[in-house]
Design a protein around this nucleic acid. Sequence first.
DNA 1: ATGACTAAGTTGTATATGCGACTTCGGCCG
DNA 2: CGGCCGAAGTCGCATATACAACTTAGTCAT
Lengths: 152, 152
Amino acid sequence: MKRSGADAKLVDRIAGDCIAVRVRLINRVISAVYDEALRPLGIRISQANLLVAVARMGEARPVDLCKVLRIEKSTLSRDVEVMKGNGWLESDPPVGGRNQVLRVTPAGRDLLARSRPAWEAAQAEASRLIGAPGVDALKEIAGRLGLGTPAG
Amino acid sequence: MKRSGADAKLVDRIAGDCIAVRVRLINRVISAVYDEALRPLGIRISQANLLVAVARMGEARPVDLCKVLRIEKSTLSRDVEVMKGNGWLESDPPVGGRNQVLRVTPAGRDLLARSRPAWEAAQAEASRLIGAPGVDALKEIAGRLGLGTPAG
DNA sequence: ATGACTAAGTTGTATATGCGACTTCGGCCG
DNA sequence: CGGCCGAAGTCGCATATACAACTTAGTCAT
């Protein structure tokens, strides 16, 4: 069962053009850069993102975070659980009731402040890897996809 | 504990500039587009990517796949396990020896062929969401990050 | 040839991610 | 006021992802 002509064409087309292949690879490589830089601090870039989003909102309702970050509610629920366990987030009321709001704890704020140098280093490395035009393009794309637009 | 000036600046800087935030959001949104389109076929875009990569190589050694896809060896090991279970990949020898090679099964090839329309639809939708210049930029970035370059 | 070293793969553990099903509040309608 | 409905959250399940530790199989030097 060798690659017949039609198969090869399809395979080459997907491998050569697929947007998802590229987006996913970029995600792995870039996330690794930030994770590596942040590792000494015990936080991952996914968690730092969430921490920043909550900090930005002051008091964040889970459903709003989901809209802003384009994350599924069940995913957010579990991410928050881990971060509460780490002492970086707290909710009011503590139990997963209905109109709970999330807040960054003092420990969370402290961690964020201490993370700055590592974040800056990762950001510089990512910029170098991607190139300035690429960075601009990513910002443009993320904006198109609704970054920061609660109303999806 | 309200947002003091310094905190707000740091938070705004990260939220406003962080490359990882954007890359990860793009990844979630775009992967969802492909996953949704492929769902009726019972395959995910991550798996389709792997299937295509193996098909392209003909006979693929895991370690080479890891280099090409920039995936950790343990991740690949488990992804392959699932895909063997689904009958899309086979290895020779079957047990996880040393110089095993992976091959796409006839069922895997058939699935790939049947997936084409869904993939094309997802590709079109992703292009629309991202915009033509953005698509070009993503290709350029992925190339810079070594897409298709076995030697990392 | 044999022992040391190294590279390749697997397994344990943890997090990230999403779908589907379920639960439980809140608000609205009569 | 009481019941219904829909939205918000949680939980079960499956996969994707990576690090650390371990296993094993080639390789290489003597």
